[in-house]
């Protein structure tokens, strides 16, 4: 069953927490991965791959650079999830 927006944000928070050690409560829709959450470009790849697995979605390299905020990633997953 497709995940809701809330479930996606919670899932992303868990992923970001595991990969970058950021507290789950800091991961909010308006937060920028690089500027606010200190997720660098390589960690972002790990976040993306973990999100692909968790939400059954494909996020190609050329789309990764457009996912600036948690909200961007959430919308992308909502739209593309299988």
């Amino acid at each position: 069953m497709a995940a809701t927006q809330e479930e996606i944000v919670d899932g992303l928070a868990e992923i970001v927490n595991e990969i970058a050690g950021i507290p789950v409560e800091d991961v909010q829709l308006d937060k920028s991965f690089t500027d606010d959450l200190d997720v660098d470009s390589l960690s972002m790849v790990e976040v993306v791959v973990a999100a692909e697995e968790r939400f059954d979605v494909k996020i190609p390299d050329e789309d990764v650079k457009n996912l600036k905020t948690v909200g961007d990633a959430t919308s992308y997953i909502l739209k593309h999830q299988g």
Binding site: S41, L42, M44, V45, E46, V49, D61, V64
Partner: peptide, 12 residues
């Protein structure tokens, strides 16, 4: 190189 693409390919 395209850093992110290389990283993803190399790791996964």
């Amino acid at each position: 190189q395209e850093g992110q693409a290389v990283f993803r390919w190399a790791v996964f």
